[in-house]
Amino acid sequence: MKYLANIVSLELFPEKCVGCGLCVEVCPHAVFQIKDKKAVIRDRDQCMECGACVQNCAFGALKVDKGVGCAAALINGMITGGEPSCDCSGQGSTGNCC
């Protein structure tokens, strides 16, 4: 299953990549592959912007607008004017989590 096409905020800067392959390891959707000792984006639309690759790239070769892909959280954020939050952590939660 794929979500909306051509919208993902993921960016890869090949000049910074050393081909360590950690992004391939942490990505839950096999977005990356190593080609000629560098990471390349195999399938952009698979990216869910979880941020695991950016968090683990020691070389700053990746960038993504990380966040929860959760309508309830984003609507909550719009209403309260704060950070998107689905109030997953309990107390008065309406249920939906992450």
């Binding site: 919208i7 698979q46 990380k66 892909g69 984003l74 609507i75």
Partner: peptide, 24 residues
């Protein structure tokens, strides 16, 4: 149905924001 985006394993924030921008 749109609320289910929060429970899936593959929806990203930019996409959901776009849906909300048009949807709301």
């Amino acid at each position: 149905g749109l609320q289910f985006t929060g429970s899936t394993t593959f929806t990203g924030m930019t996409g959901v924001k776009k849906e909300l921008g048009i949807g709301i």
